[in-house]
Design a protein around this nucleic acid. Sequence first.
DNA 1: ATGAAATTGAAAACCATTTTCAATTATACT
DNA 2: AGTATAATTGAAAATGGTTTTCAATTTCAT
Lengths: 142, 142
Amino acid sequence: MQKEIELFKDGLKKEKLKITSQRLKILEAFLKTERHMSCDDLYRAIRRGNPEIGYATVYRTLKLIQKAGLAREVDLGDRVSRLEHEYGHKHHDHLICLKCGRFFEVFDPEIEQLQERLALKYKFNAVKHKMDIFGYCRKCKS
Amino acid sequence: MQKEIELFKDGLKKEKLKITSQRLKILEAFLKTERHMSCDDLYRAIRRGNPEIGYATVYRTLKLIQKAGLAREVDLGDRVSRLEHEYGHKHHDHLICLKCGRFFEVFDPEIEQLQERLALKYKFNAVKHKMDIFGYCRKCKS
DNA sequence: ATGAAATTGAAAACCATTTTCAATTATACT
DNA sequence: AGTATAATTGAAAATGGTTTTCAATTTCAT
Ligand SMILES: [Mn+2]
Ligand SMILES: [Mn+2]
Ligand SMILES: [Zn+2]
Ligand SMILES: [Zn+2]
């Protein structure tokens, strides 16, 4: 994760922001997990080793991590912002189970291509998209 | 909109809930517009003719309207729930402009078909999906 | 080292939404 | 029609995730 740490530092320098121990610890905690973490999840995880880091600092730093291109927001429809790794992780969409809450990461190049065609048709300059399919997973369908 | 009103009343009766003047007024206000309305938007609109209707009642009734299958939630990524008509309106997705906030309603049968195929591949019983493409509209792209 | 500017944690504020509660109302049943 | 019962209402308070405020502390270019 050295590469990610460098990218983060570069992002900070570019904005004339400072490299602090709190920011680095929060970044490391985020990089350490592969799950989709809410700010609160991360706050709790960080807290275990660093009880002196504040809630607001976690929120603020997670915004910076996103700006540096290292994290992307996942919106599962509850009103909680969750983050997943962005650097070195390909774009994907989600199948989300309405019963157990589990989700599956999926990618379909044909869909992606048709999405581009659709944007083009509307002369729309697409930057990103979000596609979530909700339903019942193999284990939960009656 | 008589059909919708009947469906709403049926939905209420089925749950042993009561048909009240407030509920009917809120439903009519919702049916009257074709926009994507937040609860607050609707509260304000209703207020103009009916200053006695409370905020909580609007929230509660909008939930009932959704349960009756007359409204569907639109999630534009801010944390505000907006509603659009569901009855008599075909499913569609959105192209959302990051600059001016305007959105375009789109439908691509090929994408829909591939989405089904994707769910099938994961033995996932898809119920609904949400696809939003974010970017810059014709007028806003530099 | 110095000083300007950025950062921090704790607490308060924010804001959409939900809950509480006592008063009112709709409906089913005499 | 009158009554009992359960649902509904509006106002206010609570909730919960997120953001802001502010005084104290820290970073870093000079
Ligand atoms: Mn993911
Ligand atoms: Mn729409
Ligand atoms: Zn499941
Ligand atoms: Zn635009």
